[in-house]
Computed example of a mutant assay.
Amino acid sequence: MTYGSETFSLTTGLIRRLRVTQRAMERAMLGVSLRDRIKNVEIRRRTRVTDIAQRVAKLKWQWAGHIVRRKDGRWGPKALQWQPRTGKRSVGRPPTRWADDIKRVAGSRWIQAAQNRGIWNSLQKTYVQQWTSIG
């Protein structure tokens, strides 16, 4: 379920859908139906599976740090700093970009913060907690 999750633009809707799917999978693992009326907390206690929101957020945070620290000349770090051409914007709220939620935690200078592993790892807990508290 987490394959490629490092590249997701995390939104509350996406986290909600992932959690619903995870709960369905956990119920299937235990052979429990929704009609049995067993609470999600009890199902999670029985399966001892990590919350999908925590796992996805942690993977994305680690991947962002890895990409930014690369020095081998690949296009990953360059793509993070790329600014699209200016022109007419579409109507409505702009779609959430990949780095938007990282910037919310680490600030607009997150690329410089990621160069220092100590600082980056200390910010990881805050980032993961923001997605754990949703839903």
Rank of each mutant, 00 (worst) to 15 (best):
residue 1 M to D: 04
residue 1 M to P: 05
residue 3 Y to I: 04
residue 5 S to R: 05
residue 6 E to Y: 07
residue 7 T to A: 14
residue 8 F to N: 11
residue 9 S to R: 14
residue 9 S to I: 07
residue 9 S to G: 12
residue 13 G to T: 13
residue 14 L to R: 14
residue 15 I to M: 15
residue 17 R to T: 13
residue 17 R to M: 13
residue 19 R to Y: 06
residue 19 R to W: 04
residue 21 T to F: 06
residue 21 T to G: 06
residue 22 Q to N: 05
residue 22 Q to G: 02
residue 22 Q to Y: 01
residue 23 R to Y: 06
residue 23 R to S: 11
residue 24 A to N: 13
residue 24 A to R: 15
residue 24 A to Y: 09
residue 26 E to M: 07
residue 28 A to M: 13
residue 28 A to T: 10
residue 28 A to Q: 13
residue 28 A to N: 09
residue 28 A to I: 09
residue 30 L to F: 03
residue 30 L to N: 02
residue 31 G to Q: 01
residue 32 V to Q: 03
residue 34 L to C: 03
residue 34 L to V: 01
residue 35 R to N: 03
residue 38 I to L: 00
residue 40 N to V: 02
residue 42 E to W: 09
residue 43 I to P: 01
residue 44 R to W: 13
residue 45 R to F: 09
residue 45 R to S: 15
residue 46 R to I: 00
residue 47 T to G: 01
residue 48 R to I: 01
residue 54 Q to I: 14
residue 54 Q to D: 12
residue 55 R to D: 03
residue 57 A to L: 04
residue 60 K to N: 07
residue 61 W to V: 04
residue 61 W to E: 02
residue 62 Q to P: 02
residue 63 W to D: 00
residue 63 W to N: 02
residue 63 W to R: 03
residue 64 A to Y: 07
residue 65 G to H: 00
residue 66 H to P: 00
residue 66 H to T: 07
residue 66 H to Y: 06
residue 68 V to M: 09
residue 68 V to Q: 12
residue 69 R to P: 14
residue 70 R to D: 05
residue 70 R to V: 02
residue 70 R to Q: 13
residue 70 R to I: 05
residue 71 K to N: 11
residue 71 K to D: 14
residue 73 G to M: 02
residue 73 G to I: 03
residue 73 G to P: 00
residue 75 W to A: 12
residue 75 W to I: 11
residue 76 G to Q: 08
residue 77 P to E: 08
residue 78 K to N: 11
residue 80 L to Y: 10
residue 81 Q to H: 06
residue 81 Q to G: 08
residue 81 Q to D: 07
residue 83 Q to I: 14
residue 84 P to I: 14
residue 87 G to Y: 01
residue 89 R to F: 12
residue 89 R to H: 07
residue 89 R to V: 09
residue 90 S to Y: 15
residue 91 V to R: 15
residue 92 G to K: 06
residue 92 G to T: 04
residue 93 R to D: 08
residue 94 P to N: 11
residue 94 P to E: 11
residue 94 P to F: 12
residue 94 P to G: 13
residue 95 P to H: 09
residue 97 R to W: 12
residue 97 R to Q: 14
residue 98 W to Y: 07
residue 99 A to N: 13
residue 99 A to L: 14
residue 102 I to K: 05
residue 103 K to A: 08
residue 104 R to M: 09
residue 104 R to H: 09
residue 105 V to W: 02
residue 107 G to K: 00
residue 108 S to P: 08
residue 108 S to L: 04
residue 109 R to G: 10
residue 111 I to G: 10
residue 112 Q to E: 05
residue 113 A to D: 03
residue 114 A to D: 06
residue 118 G to W: 08
residue 119 I to R: 05
residue 120 W to R: 04
residue 120 W to S: 01
residue 121 N to S: 15
residue 121 N to I: 10
residue 125 K to W: 02
residue 125 K to H: 04
residue 125 K to M: 01
residue 125 K to A: 04
residue 127 Y to L: 00
residue 129 Q to Y: 01
residue 130 Q to H: 10
residue 130 Q to W: 03
residue 131 W to R: 05
residue 131 W to D: 07
residue 131 W to Y: 10
residue 134 I to P: 07
